[in-house]
Write a protein that binds this DNA or RNA. Structure first.
Lengths: 196, 196
DNA sequence: CCTACCGATCGGTAGG
DNA sequence: CCTACCGATCGGTAGG
């Protein structure tokens, strides 16, 4: 299957890009991970950047889907609950495929100007969902009033930081991380006691 | 002055490493920023990695000094206040020289194995200060009980995220960022109302 | 700090 | 998917 080989390439590239960065990974490094020659990679991909672009695009799809789902499932619910669902969804995408998520979070600046602009717009739209929810909670008096842009940046970078230390199979399960991060995030915005 | 030229090199390199990463920046890129030839750089530095190492080491010094100062100034004070001082110090180092801080936060993996190990030990020690303070607050019942390692990772990556978006001279002053981030961080750990 | 230069490696192509 | 190969660029050295 052609599609399967593409995925293998992207998986190998994701983990190499995560570990060494896009610029620090050569086409031959990726090929080595697949036990083929460097030049043979071009039977499957148009360019090195093409691989990066595919990884970043798929990751963006997953973050957006997770947010869609979270917002649908908690439609009409209290804003704190909707925030928790958003956090849970985001952390889920992060831990489900750290390699891919890490590349999305940290390597998108290496894209070509055209692709960088396109992904930048999607990142902005995604971040705006968080800002709107935070603004809504602040206006409703449920969250402590805060600059929605700053608070969204704070939360998102705290969550995204997971890609710098998370290792599947490590001592902390995705569920444990998610539970703790949901609490920390909710508490950062809400005044009174939330749990415990 | 020899020292001054070294600093110029490190400053130019910091902002290039921040923007393009260590692997994505060539020795000739750095030289171009100083209006000299690529080979001329080697009159001042031993190697490209030598420049990275100098930047990372100086940043580590600054983070440690800020934490020392914060902990001295709040010695004997309530744990929440000590946490706030630690956050304020960390954010101050971040905004005082984002280029340098960004390289410390994101490019230290590009160091040679020996240097990476040495900086890794310092990073661990620094993070342990945060863990200990969080553990202390949890045990005293001032903070909501949380896994100190997870909570420290959450806070530190939230703060470090500043390097991904902060631009000196932008709409948000370092003071405004610091004030908001101090509140968000304190609230993430403490149950009851803190301010506002 | 410059010119001239080094071997190694880069992303990528041609032609099977 | 391979071999053979391309021009460009990499970090770095020699010798002023």
């Amino acid at each position: 299957m052609v599609e399967t080989r593409r995925r293998q390439i992207e998986d190998v590239a994701s983990s190499l890009f995560r570990e060494h960065g896009y610029a620090g990974t050569s086409v031959r490094d990726i090929a080595r991970g697949l036990a083929i020659q460097g030049a043979s990679l071009y039977a499957h991909v148009a360019s090195k950047e093409d691989v990066l672009w595919a990884i970043v695009r798929r990751a963006a799809d997953r973050f957006e889907s997770a947010a869609d789902e979270a917002q649908q499932e908690t439609f009409g619910r209290p804003v704190g609950e909707r925030l928790e669902a958003l956090v849970r969804g985001h952390v889920g995408v992060l831990t489900d495929d750290v390699g891919q998520a890490s590349v999305f979070v940290r390597e998108w600046r290496s894209l070509s100007p055209e692709h960088r602009a396109r992904i930048g717009a999607r990142r902005d739209a995604y971040e705006n969902r968080w800002r709107r929810l935070i603004a809504e909670g602040s206006e409703a008096g449920v969250f402590v009033p805060a600059d929605p842009a700053l608070a969204a940046a704070y939360l998102l970078t705290a969550l995204n930081g997971i890609v710098t230390w998370y290792r599947p199979g490590g001592p902390l399960s995705p569920r444990a991380i998610s539970a703790e991060y949901v609490n920390l995030s909710h508490r950062a915005l809400a005044p009174g006691r939330i749990d415990d």
